[in-house]
Amino acid sequence: MSPKTICLTSGKGGVGKTSLTVNLACALSRQGVRVLVVDGDLGLANADVLLGLTVTHTIRHLLEDDRDPMETLIFPEPQLAVLPASSGVPDIVNLGPDDQERLSRILRTLAAGFDLTLIDTAAGIGPSVLWFGALADQLILVVNPDPTSLTDAYALIKVLAQEYQRREFHLLLNAVRSDDEAFQTFDTLAQVATRFLRVEVLYLGSVPQDPAVTRSVREQTPFVQRFPRSKAALAVAALAARLSQDRALAL
């Protein structure tokens, strides 16, 4: 597996993007993949919260003083690292050109030490989301069956296709009640995107609606650890297995 950077984003907030990123990272690391999670929600970070981590240094410190980026990483598990962002610090939300350049250099250096880097972006289609989206090798859109999730994800695909010439998008359906619902939601988005934007939307997988997800968020423990036999955990583990083995996905 050569180092790859994947950006997980969604358009709409609250669809379970951060939770999926963190759990996917945990599942991957348990399968022997060295994973780095970058909290790309620079203003309202919370990847660390879901992992129950105590953060002392964040991306903001990396940009402000010239410290060693490796020192900023937190390792909840030997194979899993987290690069935390700041919470409630508005000045870093919209990065200036110099900071952008430095951050992308730092991320490239860090990513080289891992098999896979997962970037968890903020919600919306703000500048930082588009910036991370343009930086990554692959894009995963986390979508749930709500109509608003669909339209927001579509709006994001449209901007990334038009302004950043992205042509390929992987869809990860979250909180679905059945496989059928997942396929239908995917079909809708894929058809409209192909029809109007001429981009390729690929089906990555789905994670079922599961009370274990909400409970694990409250307990600040990934559900793949806390409830490994839950439907959601099994789905994420299966997805991680496919990602780590299936080179056809080009991930």
Partner: peptide, 26 residues
């Protein structure tokens, strides 16, 4: 219109069409 980043009424209709209809078409 496709060149503008705004989601057009046609795109919106496509995304929000009732599911049973979509199933028939696909």
């Amino acid at each position: 219109d496709q060149a503008s980043p705004e989601v057009s009424p046609e795109e919106r209709t496509g995304l929000l069409t009732p599911k049973n209809l979509r199933k028939k078409i696909s």
